[in-house]
Computed example of a mutant assay.
Amino acid sequence: MKTFKADYVFPVSADPIKNGVVTVDDYGKVISVNNEETADPNVPFETLSGVIVPGFINTHCHTELSHLKDKIAPGNGLISFIKEILATRAADPQAIADGAKAADQEMYDNGIVAVGDISNTADTVEMKAASKMYYHTFVEILGFIPERAEQVFNSALETAEKFKPHPSSVTAHAPYTVSKELFKLIKRYSDANENLLSIHNQECEDENKFYRYKLGGFIDLYKHLNINIDFFKPQARNSLQSVIPLLTNKQNILMVHNTCTNLKDIYFIKRFDRRINWCFCPNANLYIEKRLPKVELFVNQDLNITLGTDSLASNTKLCILSEMRTLQQNFPSLSLELLLQWATINGAAFLGIDNTKGTIEAGKTPGLNLLTGLDGFKITDDTKVKRLV
Rank of each mutant, 00 (worst) to 15 (best):
K5F: 02
K5T: 13
A14P: 00
V22T: 11
D26R: 11
G28M: 04
G28K: 06
V30Y: 00
S32Y: 09
N34V: 02
E36C: 11
D40G: 04
N42S: 15
V43N: 10
F45P: 07
T47H: 11
S49H: 14
P54F: 04
I57F: 01
H60E: 03
G75M: 04
S80R: 12
S80M: 04
I82N: 04
E84L: 06
T88A: 07
A91C: 13
I96Q: 03
E106F: 02
I112N: 00
A114L: 07
G116M: 01
G116A: 03
I118V: 08
T124C: 09
V125Q: 02
E126H: 06
M127F: 00
Y134M: 08
F144C: 08
A149I: 02
E150H: 14
Q151E: 15
Q151F: 09
Q151R: 13
Q151D: 13
V152R: 08
V152F: 07
V152T: 15
N154I: 07
S155M: 14
T159S: 03
P167D: 08
S169F: 08
S169C: 12
T171I: 14
H173T: 04
A174N: 03
E181F: 15
E181Y: 14
F183Y: 15
I186P: 07
N193V: 10
E194V: 12
N195I: 12
N195H: 13
N195R: 09
Q202S: 14
E207Q: 09
K209C: 11
Y211N: 04
Y211D: 07
K214S: 04
G217C: 11
H224Y: 15
N228Y: 12
I229R: 09
D230A: 13
F232P: 13
K233V: 15
N238Q: 04
S239I: 03
V243H: 13
I244N: 06
P245S: 12
K250Y: 07
I269E: 12
F272V: 05
D273A: 15
C279A: 12
C279F: 08
C281S: 04
N283H: 05
N283S: 08
L286K: 13
Y287C: 03
I288N: 03
L292C: 05
V299F: 02
Q301G: 06
I305E: 12
L307W: 00
D310T: 01
D310L: 00
S311C: 06
L312D: 07
L312S: 06
C319Y: 01
E323I: 00
R325M: 06
I345W: 00
A349M: 11
F350T: 08
L351N: 07
G352P: 02
D354W: 01
I360Y: 00
A362Y: 07
L374D: 11
D375V: 09
